[in-house]
Write a protein that binds this DNA or RNA. Structure first.
Lengths: 122, 122
DNA sequence: TTCATATTTGGCAAAATAGCCATGCTTTAC
DNA sequence: GTAAAGCATGGCTATTTTGCCAAATATGAA
């Protein structure tokens, strides 16, 4: 029998492959264009053309970004007719986006307030 | 009054700064060494020396990684005596790590099974 | 003060990433 | 069959990231 990763062991002391895969997910999400596409996919699947319109970059660029997301397992793609439709494949992502979103909004708010204060002082 | 980001607007149609900040968080987490440190910090704060022992890279490398995490707002640091202690600053991260962890463990399990199957066939 | 310890920062070379253009592939329309 | 539409991929350059060494900084001990 092959050496299978033990769930408990994984949780306690993650092995290299496990960490690498998880980092891959974060890395895939760590680009504005890719994150924007993922945000959009929360509303439902979209074809590459839709996502290209959203990003406004070359089709080839969008396609590569989608490949990164797909290979990380963040999205999945399905071909129907002449189009390829992408959809979210990481259900728990929405919650996390919501949470960080709230935090970031708060941080941006505070930073704006700080800038305003500095302007008042000068 | 300064233009403050509106929460509703942010949720519906994220602006550039918002997306960039959120992507920054993911990017920071998208490196095996940084992710490993963050995983370790779930157990509580640690000094840089602890984290260096965990990663096994040069101290300067670890310090740089920590700076990336700190600037993204994933961790915060506090100086006490001659040490600097790092702690998680993104509470909702633990849940997401748990969720993706389960998913990844399952994927790795399936891939292992596939490899084993291929070996049986050859 | 001087020394040792803990951490950050400057600087550099190697590696990875991003984005564009041109090209190739696949499916539908004609 | 040919043409067109929708995506992916090869290939290239510019930029960014990574990781090390050396040097700077800060803090506590002697």
């Amino acid at each position: 029998m092959a050496i299978l990763p033990n769930m408990n062991e994984v949780s306690a002391r993650p092995n290299r492959q496990y960490i690498a895969e998880q980092a891959r997910i974060f890395k895939a999400l760590g680009h504005p264009s890719r994150l924007l596409m993922v945000q959009a996919l929360r509303d439902g699947e979209k074809c590459v053309c839709d996502l290209q319109a959203l990003i406004g970059a070359d089709m080839s660029t969008v396609s590569r970004h989608l490949a990164v997301l797909r290979e990380a397992g963040v999205v999945r793609s399905e071909k129907r007719g002449t189009n390829i439709y992408y959809a979210l494949a990481l259900s728990c992502l929405a919650t996390f986006l919501q949470c960080t979103g709230t935090l970031i909004a708060e941080r941006i708010r505070q930073k704006s307030a700080l800038l305003e204060h500095d302007q008042d002082a000068t």
